[in-house]
């Protein structure tokens, strides 16, 4: 393979490349936050009106620990009863699997094309 001579990149072009990467990086984290779509929140399904340790499902040993930590049944109410919701749709799961597979397919495919050029130039053709 003929030797590939890369073009010289100007300083302005180098700067633009860095800015593009930084903007994409910050966007990847902050866009889901701005759109309010990030994170998994815990919620209390059924609140207990007048909480006691028993009503919150705590044994005497467990209640003693909460008291040692400075909690009362009222102040520990949300902490003890809040739960994650693990229900999900099959469609969303399939979409995630497809996105991951597509991503790895894309990079492995393009990498292979680039790698063959590297090996051909380094070691010569087969």
């Amino acid at each position: 393979m003929a030797h590939y001579e890369p073009p010289k990149q100007s300083k302005a072009s180098q700067l633009i490349d860095v800015v593009v990467l930084v903007v994409l990086t910050v966007g990847a984290l902050f866009v889901p936050l701005w759109m309010g779509m990030a994170g998994a929140a815990k919620t209390v399904a059924e609140a207990v009106a007048s909480p006691t340790w028993e009503a919150l499902g705590q044994t005497p040993a467990q209640a003693a620990k909460y008291e040692a930590l400075g909690y009362t049944p009222e102040s520990a109410h949300d902490l003890i009863l809040a739960r994650f919701d693990y229900s999900f749709s099959v469609g969303a799961l399939v979409a995630m699997v497809v996105v991951i597979l597509l991503y790895y397919f894309l990079i492995l495919r393009f990498s292979d094309v680039e790698y063959r050029e590297v090996i051909a130039e380094k070691f010569g053709q087969k």
Binding site: L24, P32, M96, L102, L106
Partner: peptide, 26 residues
């Protein structure tokens, strides 16, 4: 672990892989 992340943070997972797809093309 991908499935575990999906159970709580699926949006971030897709946003992040979307980011890597875009920078890969770039």
């Amino acid at each position: 672990t991908f499935f575990a992340v999906f159970l709580g943070y699926g949006t971030q997972l897709v946003a992040m892989i979307g980011f890597y797809i875009v920078v890969s093309l770039w």
